[in-house]
Amino acid sequence: MCCSGFLKIMMFIFNGAIFVAGAAILGVGVWVKVDSGSLLGVLEEIEDVPDAFAQLVNVGYLLIGVGAVLLVIGFLGCCGAIRESRCMLMTFFCIVLIIFLAEVAGAVVLFVFQGLVKELVVDLETQVRKSIEKDYGNENSLTNIWNHTMDEFKCCGFMNYTDFDNSPYHNMHGKLFYPPTCCNATRDGDVVVVCPALTARDSRVPGCFLKLVELLEDNAVIVAAVALGIAFVEIAAMVVSLVLYCKIGDNKA
Rank of each mutant, 00 (worst) to 15 (best):
C2L: 14
S4Q: 15
S4T: 15
G5F: 08
L7F: 11
M11V: 11
M11K: 00
G16K: 14
A17T: 13
G22H: 09
V32C: 03
D35V: 01
S36N: 13
G37C: 05
G37R: 07
L39N: 00
L40R: 09
L40S: 02
L40E: 06
G41N: 02
E44S: 12
E47Y: 13
E47C: 05
V49E: 05
P50V: 10
P50G: 07
D51W: 01
A52G: 04
F53C: 03
Y61N: 10
I64Q: 01
G67S: 13
V69R: 00
L70D: 04
L70Y: 04
L71V: 08
V72Y: 02
G74I: 14
L76Q: 02
G77V: 12
C78H: 14
C79I: 09
A81K: 08
I82Y: 05
S85V: 11
S85N: 12
M90G: 00
T91M: 13
I95W: 06
V96Y: 01
I99L: 15
L101G: 07
A102L: 15
A102V: 13
A105H: 11
L110K: 02
F111E: 06
Q114T: 09
L116C: 02
V121E: 14
V122D: 10
V122M: 11
D123G: 08
Q127E: 14
Q127A: 13
K134D: 00
Y136A: 07
E139H: 06
N140E: 14
N140A: 13
L142K: 08
N144F: 06
I145G: 05
W146E: 04
H148S: 09
T149D: 06
D151V: 12
D151G: 15
E152I: 03
E152R: 04
C155E: 10
C155P: 00
G157C: 05
G157F: 02
F158G: 04
T162D: 01
D165P: 00
D165R: 08
N166H: 07
Y169A: 11
H170W: 15
H170T: 00
N171T: 13
N171E: 11
L176A: 04
L176N: 05
Y178A: 06
P179A: 12
P180R: 03
C182W: 03
C183N: 09
N184W: 01
R187E: 10
G189W: 05
V191E: 10
V192E: 14
V192Y: 08
P196C: 04
A197H: 09
A197I: 09
T199G: 01
T199A: 07
A200Q: 11
A200R: 06
C208P: 04
F209C: 02
L210W: 00
L212E: 02
V213M: 11
L216P: 00
E217W: 03
D218R: 13
A224S: 09
A225T: 12
V226Q: 12
A227Q: 14
E234V: 05
A236F: 15
A237Y: 07
V240R: 07
L242G: 06
L242P: 01
V243W: 14
Y245R: 08
K247F: 12
I248G: 08
D250I: 14
N251Q: 06
N251K: 05
